[in-house]
Design a protein around this nucleic acid. Structure first.
Lengths: 198, 198
DNA sequence: GTCTATATCCAGATAGAC
DNA sequence: GTCTATCTGGATATAGAC
């Protein structure tokens, strides 16, 4: 990508947003620790001084990014909850959402489900304890309670429903799968649902 | 752990093994980039000079560790292949093996399936392309070919069979699950097999 | 082969002009 | 609020005695 391109893409954005955008890209492509603040300076077209004016430190950047992505995920899951009444519909919608996000914004997906946050955000809980992941499990718990799903351990059921999709997402992000996950959605869903349906 | 303890544990081992052992522990507990060579010096009771005499550099340590664990995994999967003739038996044995390893040697499991190798071993292929992971998928492919499993996409079938177990392993390593995975083995396997059985 | 002492580098972070 | 110049610490890696 040329310098000119970068400027076009990021024109009109404030420092905060430019830094977050650049960092998401660098962190997912190279890893948090392989990305230096000077790297972020170059990629964001902001100066060191500006960056430290807007963020406490490098970890503060990662934290802002993390919070914003979790917040966004949580909002979308809330919409799914409102739109669909059954466990079956909700879980299917979640998997479709995750696949779509993997295809359209792989950096976002990679940062959410594939980054080792505890290594660079040691203060935070593991991401699987975060609100969005909890909500995903609630969809399951309710399904067990109302008899849509087999009466088994919640964690086992959640892992069975979402586990296959999450594996495929990792394989896709790693380049092992070369075509769009959307092609596999129906098959994945069929397997996932069969594994726990009552 | 006291210094005395450490010496007892590692007495009689050579530099190579002491360094590998200490590094596995440090890398999984703190992350590769949060572990300095001086950290490894202290934990292994080897001097900087000795370490660099036996390994080219810090990455060389991680690489030796990675290769040795993959080699070990590969050997055990080979035994499973020999011992069991059917896809069903083999996949079940794989999941049991992974659960056992998670409980008895969580560091090993964490380094194999949860570390972001591409960030600190940039030369290597993604681990899901490695021999052991390929072999796990072969067990599936053969099952599809001989009619034990539904005739669906190999990757989808593999993700469905192993995905739930791998999710639970991550939850266990993150401390979200507090009891032994062995307790859940039967349920996990039932779900996994139902998802793809012909 | 193992050790201590040390060189070199570059990261993260700050100071202070504008 | 943004910038450039700079400080400081600690990391990786080496040198060279033993």
């Amino acid at each position: 990508m040329t310098k000119a391109n970068k400027k076009v893409i990021q024109s009109g954005k404030g420092v905060h947003e430019r830094v977050i955008d650049a960092s998401l890209h660098l962190f997912t492509q190279q890893g948090y620790f392989n990305t230096s603040v000077p790297d972020i300076v170059k990629a964001s077209n902001c100066s060191t001084g500006s960056i430290y004016h807007h963020f406490k430190d490098k970890e503060g950047i990662a934290n802002a990014l993390y919070e914003s992505l979790l917040h966004r995920m949580n909002a979308v899951l809330g919409e799914i909850e409102q739109q669909f009444p059954t466990s079956k519909q909700r879980c299917r919608a979640v998997i479709e959402l995750l696949f779509q996000l993997t295809e359209t914004e792989p950096d976002v997906m990679e940062f959410i489900i594939y980054a080792k946050h505890k290594e660079f955000l040691p203060g935070n809980n593991p991401i699987c304890s975060s609100r969005p992941f909890q909500k995903m499990r609630e969809f399951i718990t309710e399904g067990i309670a109302n008899g849509e799903l087999e009466p088994i351990d919640d964690m086992v059921a959640a892992a069975s429903i979402y586990g296959g999709a999450l594996r495929l997402i990792v394989l896709r992000l790693d380049g092992v799968i070369e075509h769009s996950l959307m092609d596999k959605l129906d098959d994945v869903w069929k397997c996932a649902w069969r594994s726990v349906a009552a």
